[in-house]
């Protein structure tokens, strides 16, 4: 039950994070008249959001299952920290030379790195990690 519920949590979070990232990408691209589709496309966005959210769910299932739900807080802190760390690489990321305005790329990609963790934490209270301990 915990695995099923946890994976549902991961997949729902991934879907919402993906939709948010895709909408943000469209808005950003139109607002700044840039095209980063060669390095940041819809398929990649969905894949990375799904991977991130499912891994977070697996972490929740395994750690809270073994050590109790109070560890969810530490996991949340860890997920936020990892999200912050993941943006550091974006500042040194080299785009293909034919892509113009690379200085605008971090503004697109950095918020997207937080969408999976935000979405995952927003939905966490709706899933029954907590109920099983009561």
């Amino acid at each position: 039950m915990k695995w099923k519920s946890g994976l549902m949590h991961g997949l729902l979070s991934a879907a919402v994070a993906s939709v948010a990232a895709i909408i943000y990408n469209i808005l950003y691209t139109k607002a700044f008249i840039v095209d980063f589709s060669a390095v940041l496309n819809t398929g990649g966005t969905i894949f990375s959001s799904t991977l991130g959210c499912v891994l977070m769910a697996v972490g929740y299932i395994m750690i809270t299952g073994r050590y109790g739900t109070k560890w969810a807080g530490y996991l949340n802190l860890g997920y936020v920290l990892l999200s912050f760390v993941s943006i550091l690489g974006l500042f040194s990321f080299h785009l293909p030379l034919e892509i113009e305005s690379p200085e605008l790329f971090p503004g697109l990609a950095i918020p997207m790195h937080f969408f999976p963790a935000l979405s995952f934490m927003a939905f966490a209270p709706f899933f029954n990690y907590w109920k099983e301990e009561q």
Partner: peptide
């Protein structure tokens, strides 16, 4: 000049 990186361009 475009180096593929905004900070490096600057």
């Amino acid at each position: 000049i475009n180096t593929g990186n905004g900070l490096r361009n600057k």
